[in-house]
Amino acid sequence: MSKIHVTTTINDDEVEFLCDPRESLLDVLRDRLSLTGAKEGCGTGDCGACTVTVDGRLVCACLMLGAEAEGKSIGTVEGIATDEELHPLQQKFIEYAALQCGICTPGILVAAKNLLERNPDPTETEVRYWLAGNLCRCTGYDKIIRAVMDTAAEMREAS
């Protein structure tokens, strides 16, 4: 079966790969490009652990073919921290213990960062609904929601 050649941008770097047409973007990220930050929790778009951005919009990488990445700009958890600095959300997640096992954390951080870029002052309800597609089984979401809200407040003050 012939493979498809794809040129794309991931975390601002140009990347080329070959993939089977059946491979999802998540398969490509994890198994071909060694970007294992995005996790496969379900493979059916129900858990959000593989959340990435595609041209600035949130997508479950398991619900997109690798071949569809052609010409797109993809953002993953590996691209959130800049140089030596963690993103404020990353700092707050550690400070608030907004993670226990950490498997959902990459997807939640990508989703939460995207929310704050669109809405710097979300209500608790808006945060909860925005993140409803990111399942966490450890925390009961309490500390996650608090970490996102507090990060938003701090970023508003800083700007």
Partner: peptide, 18 residues
């Protein structure tokens, strides 16, 4: 802060399938 915090918020932490 937990010692594995940075690994887990940057995607570096290695889980079973990683």
């Amino acid at each position: 802060d937990r010692p594995d915090g940075v690994d887990k918020v940057t995607g570096r932490a290695r889980f079973g399938a990683d």
